[in-house]
C-alpha cells in the first residue's frame, strides 16, 4: 500500500492550565492520501485547528507522531507545506504582488521564474487588475485570495486551510470553494481543509472526517464519492443533501456536548 502523504498516530494535545491540565485533542490516528481533498469538521473547541497546526509544526503534539511524506515533522514547517489561515494574513505594508511573492523572494529563484509564478497566481485567483493595490483596499474575499495565491506560488505539495472562508459571506464562500477546487485540480496538491461549515466540507472534499467534542477524536470518516471535476453546483444534487445530512447526524450530539449541559 502507498505511504500516506500525512500520517498521524496517537496524536494528543494537552494544555497545562492553572488548575491542572486540559486534554484538548486526541488520541488521533489519521492518514491523508496523496492528492486527495480532505476536510475535517467538528464542534467548536474540538481541536480541529490544533490538528492542522501540528501538521504545520506551529504546535507540537503532546504525544504521538506526525509524518509528512514519510518523515517526522520537527520544529519547523516542512518544505512543501503551505498554510492559509482564517484571519487576514496579508501584510498590510505590501501591495498584492509583493504579498504574493514574499516567500518566493526568500528562495533561490530567478527573477523571471518569480514573475512567471506571480502572473500565474494572479490570473488563477482573478487578481491581475489588483497587483498594485494594498490589502486595505480589497474586500475580505479578495484578501483571502491574496493569501491563497501567496501559498500557491510556493508550489506546495500539501495545502492546509484553517477555516479559510470563515469570515466570508455565503455566496462568496461557494464561489471561493469553486476556486479552491480549480486550484486543487491544477496543482495536484493534497488539501486538508478545516471548517465548521458542513456544506462546505460536503461540497469540496473527497473524504470528510467528523470529530467529537473536546477532547477531539475522529469519530467517522465519510467518503463523498464526488467526481474530480465537481463544482459548487453539486449543492443541488440529492446526494449532496444525503452527505450533509449524514454529517449533521454524526455531529449533532457532539455539538450539543460542546454547547454545554443546559441543553
Amino acid at each position: 500500500m502507498e505511504t500516506p502523504h500525512v500520517r498521524m498516530r496517537g496524536v494528543t494535545r494537552v494544555y497545562p492550565t492553572e488548575t491542572g491540565s486540559l486534554h484538548a485533542l486526541g488520541p488521533v490516528d489519521l492518514d491523508l492520501r496523496k492528492g486527495e481533498f480532505f476536510a475535517v469538521v467538528g464542534p467548536s473547541g474540538c481541536g480541529k485547528s490544533t490538528l492542522l497546526e501540528m501538521i504545520a509544526a506551529l504546535a507540537p503534539p503532546s504525544e504521538g507522531a506526525v509524518e509528512f511524506e514519510g518523515k517526522p515533522i520537527g520544529a519547523s514547517v516542512p518544505d512543501g507545506v503551505g498554510v492559509v489561515f482564517q484571519e487576514n494574513a496579508c501584510f498590510p505594508w505590501l501591495n498584492v504582488a509583493d504579498n504574493i511573492t514574499f516567500g518566493l523572494r526568500r528562495q533561490p529563484l530567478a527573477k523571471d521564474e518569480i514573475a512567471r509564478r506571480l502572473d500565474y497566481a494572479l490570473t488563477l485567483m482573478g487578481l491581475t487588475d489588483f497587483a498594485a493595490a494594498y490589502p486595505a483596499q480589497l474586500s475580505g474575499g479578495m484578501r483571502q485570495r491574496v493569501c491563497i495565491a501567496r501559498t500557491l506560488v510556493t508550489q506546495p505539495r500539501l495545502i492546509l486551510l484553517d477555516e479559510p472562508f470563515g469570515a466570508l459571506d455565503q455566496q462568496t464562500r461557494l464561489l471561493m470553494g469553486d476556486e479552491l477546487l480549480n486550484l486543487w485540480r491544477a496543482t495536484g496538491a493534497t488539501v486538508l481543509l478545516i471548517t465548521h461549515a458542513l456544506d462546505e466540507a460536503a461540497m469540496l472534499a473527497d473524504r470528510v472526517a467528523v470529530m467529537s467534542s473536546r477532547p477531539g477524536r475522529i469519530i467517522e470518516i465519510i467518503e463523498t464519492g464526488w467526481p474530480r471535476d465537481r463544482d459548487s453546483r453539486i449543492v443541488s444534487d440529492p446526494a449532496f443533501g444525503a452527505v450533509t445530512g449524514r454529517l449533521w447526524t454524526l455531529l449533532r450530539d457532539q455539538s450539543l456536548n460542546a454547547l454545554g449541559p443546559a441543553h
Binding site: A57, E87, F91
Partner: peptide
C-alpha cells in the same frame, strides 16, 4: 496580529528576517 507571526513561521523566516520583514 498572531496570524502574521504564524505566516512568518510557515514561510520559515529566520529570526532576524522575521524581525526585519514582519
Amino acid at each position: 496580529a498572531p496570524v502574521l507571526l504564524k505566516s512568518a513561521a510557515v514561510m520559515r523566516l529566520s529570526r532576524a528576517d522575521r524581525i526585519r520583514s514582519i
